[in-house]
Design a protein around this nucleic acid. Sequence first.
DNA 1: GCGACAG
DNA 2: ATCTTGTCGC
Length: 257
Amino acid sequence: MDWGDNIQIITNSELPVCHSGMKWATFPSQKVVYEDSRMISLTAPYISGFLAFREMPFLVDAVHRLQEKEPNLMPQVLLVDGNGVLHHQGFGIACHLGVLTGLPCIGVAKKLLQVEGLENNAAHKEKIQLLHAGGDTFPLMGGSGTVLGMALKSHDHSTKPLYISVGHKISLEAAVRLTHCCCRFRIPEPVRQADIRSREYIRRTLGLSGPPVPGQERNQKGPKSKAHPKGGSAEPAEENRHPEDPSKGPGTDPEAP
DNA sequence: GCGACAG
DNA sequence: ATCTTGTCGC
């Protein structure tokens, strides 16, 4: 593989209530060199096909913050949690982010967006079962015969494929190969780490602030708390934290056989 | 009630 | 995205 050792990858990971997390890392070593998590106020609701409407401003903001703070770390490619041209209008969130930042973007979706006749039906599931080893793919063809993306078995023991599509300034083939090279587990590490770290950030900033009523039940069915000031970003209580997170120990590995 | 469902 | 219950492997 001739990507070199200095390709950097950025990933979004938005939780539906109030958080945006991103992670920058080198390739192929995948060492985290920069992290930016903060509270946000989501306004637009989640509507399938309009993900960019909801999340784009925060992703662009994060890229701009990086440009200000560490321009030397500006990545050469972004892995975006969502679709690129595999989209109702042929322009998913990975395309938006690519155009607005000028950076190459890869759409990495965990579920098939059913568009242009693509359907997660029996025939599709059959193709999935024919995928043999990690790295195996099959094309996702729209009604017009155009290849909108590729289903990718991200590692040998993964049941569900990833749905890779071009976002911006990268070929589908390169997008698939690069994504596959990032997969220690089903979800490519940039996406996975952004996810893990964003949840950890939430836990650490809101986790202990909420008043744990003595009789607190485990499964609170009430509405999600919006316990953060609107229009502002909540700062973590501890500012000087070592970004090093030596080893997570033998944690549970999702999607592991 | 039924279909659809990127996050 | 979230919530379940259970299973397997390191």
